[in-house]
Measured scan of single mutants.
Amino acid sequence: ETFPLDVLVNTAAEDLPRGVDPSRKENFLSDEDFKAVFGMTRSAFANLPLWKQQNLKKEKGLF
């Protein structure tokens, strides 16, 4: 299941849709939104070091 970017960005855990893991908001973006937000594919993002993934998520309001 995916959700629009505005539902996930800068949203407190208690305000997220049911079933969304607040530590993994990026997994609930569509592939198109994911690429638009991070400028890379999911596989490229997954290959980044964890610290870099976290920094990007913070920068984009998805942490």
Rank of each mutant, 00 (worst) to 15 (best):
A13D: 15
M40R: 01
D33C: 06
L29C: 04
L16K: 03
F45E: 00
M40Y: 05
S43A: 14
E1V: 15
Q54I: 15
L29Q: 01
A46M: 12
D15G: 10
F34V: 01
W51F: 09
K52G: 05
A44T: 10
L50K: 10
V37I: 11
T11W: 10
L62K: 02
S23M: 15
G19F: 09
V37F: 06
K60R: 08
L62H: 03
F45R: 00
W51A: 09
L16R: 02
L8P: 03
S30F: 01
F3D: 04
F45T: 00
P22I: 08
P4Q: 06
R24F: 14
A13E: 14
Q54S: 10
R18F: 14
G61K: 04
L16T: 06
T2I: 10
E14M: 06
E26W: 02
M40Q: 01
E59R: 09
Q53H: 00
L50E: 11
T2H: 10
N27A: 14
G39I: 01
N55E: 15
V7A: 09
R24G: 07
L48I: 04
F38L: 07
R42T: 01
S30Q: 02
F38V: 01
G61I: 02
A13T: 14
D21Y: 03
K35W: 15
L50G: 10
L56K: 05
D15H: 11
P49S: 07
T11P: 06
F45V: 00
K58Y: 10
G39T: 03
T2F: 15
R18Q: 14
F63P: 05
K25P: 08
E14R: 10
N27I: 10
E26T: 03
K25R: 15
K58H: 09
S43F: 13
M40G: 00
A46L: 12
L16P: 07
N47S: 14
D6F: 08
P4C: 07
P22N: 05
Q54H: 11
E26L: 04
K57I: 08
L8M: 05
N47I: 12
D15K: 10
E14A: 11
L50S: 10
N10D: 08
A46V: 10
K25C: 08
F34K: 00
L5H: 05
E32S: 10
D31E: 12
L50T: 11
K52L: 13
V37H: 05
F63I: 13
S43R: 12
F38M: 07
T41M: 08
L16I: 06
W51V: 10
N47M: 14
K57A: 05
E32N: 09
F34S: 00
F3V: 06
E14Y: 01
K35A: 14
R42L: 04
D6I: 10
G39P: 00
S43L: 14
P17N: 05
M40L: 06
T2A: 07
W51T: 09
S30T: 13
F38S: 00
W51I: 10
T41F: 04
N10K: 08
G19E: 11
F34R: 00
T2V: 11
L62T: 01
L62A: 03
P17E: 04
D21H: 07
A44F: 09
L56C: 04
L5A: 05
T2Q: 07
V7H: 07
W51G: 07
D31H: 07
F38P: 00
K52P: 00
A46P: 00
L8E: 03
L56S: 01
F38N: 00
F45W: 07
E26P: 03
N27G: 06
P49C: 05
L29N: 01
L5D: 03
E14L: 07
F28P: 02
Q54A: 12
T11F: 08
F38I: 01
F34G: 00
K25E: 04
A13N: 15
L48G: 00
F34E: 00
L48P: 00
P4L: 05
S30L: 02
K25V: 15
L50W: 12
F34D: 00
K35E: 15
K58W: 12
R42W: 02
P49A: 06
K60M: 07
F45M: 01
K58Q: 11
Q53Y: 01
L5F: 10
N47Q: 14
K35H: 15
P4D: 07
T41N: 11
D31S: 05
P4K: 03
F34W: 02
D31C: 06
N10F: 06
M40N: 00
G39Y: 04
F38G: 00
Q53A: 03
A36L: 13
L29F: 03
S23D: 14
D21E: 06
A46F: 12
T41V: 07
P17T: 04
L50N: 09
V20S: 05
T41D: 13
R18G: 12
V7N: 06
R18L: 15
A12L: 12
V37M: 06
D33K: 03
D33S: 05
L48Y: 03
K58M: 11
R42S: 02
G61N: 06
E26A: 02
E59W: 07
K52C: 13
F28I: 03
L5S: 04
V20R: 04
G19P: 05
N10H: 11
L5P: 07
F45L: 01
F3Q: 06
E14H: 11
N47E: 13
R24W: 08
P49H: 02
M40T: 01
T2C: 10
Q54L: 13
D21G: 02
E14W: 02
D31K: 05
A36Q: 15
L48D: 00
F28L: 07
D33R: 01
E26Q: 06
L8G: 03
T11N: 08
N47C: 15
P49K: 01
D6V: 09
E32W: 08
K52Q: 14
F63W: 14
L56T: 02
P17R: 03
S43Y: 13
A46S: 13
D31W: 03
A13G: 08
G19Y: 08
F28V: 04
F34A: 00
M40V: 03
A44M: 12
V7I: 12
V37T: 10
V20I: 10
G19Q: 09
K25T: 10
P4Y: 04
V7K: 11
D31M: 05
L5M: 09
L8W: 02
Q53V: 01
K57R: 09
A44N: 09
T41E: 12
N55T: 13
Q54N: 14
K35Q: 14
A13I: 13
S43H: 14
D21Q: 06
A13H: 11
N27Y: 11
L50V: 12
L50C: 14
D33V: 08
E32T: 12
F63H: 15
D31T: 06
L62D: 05
N47G: 11
E26S: 02
A12W: 06
S30I: 02
R42E: 01
F28R: 05
V7P: 03
G19R: 07
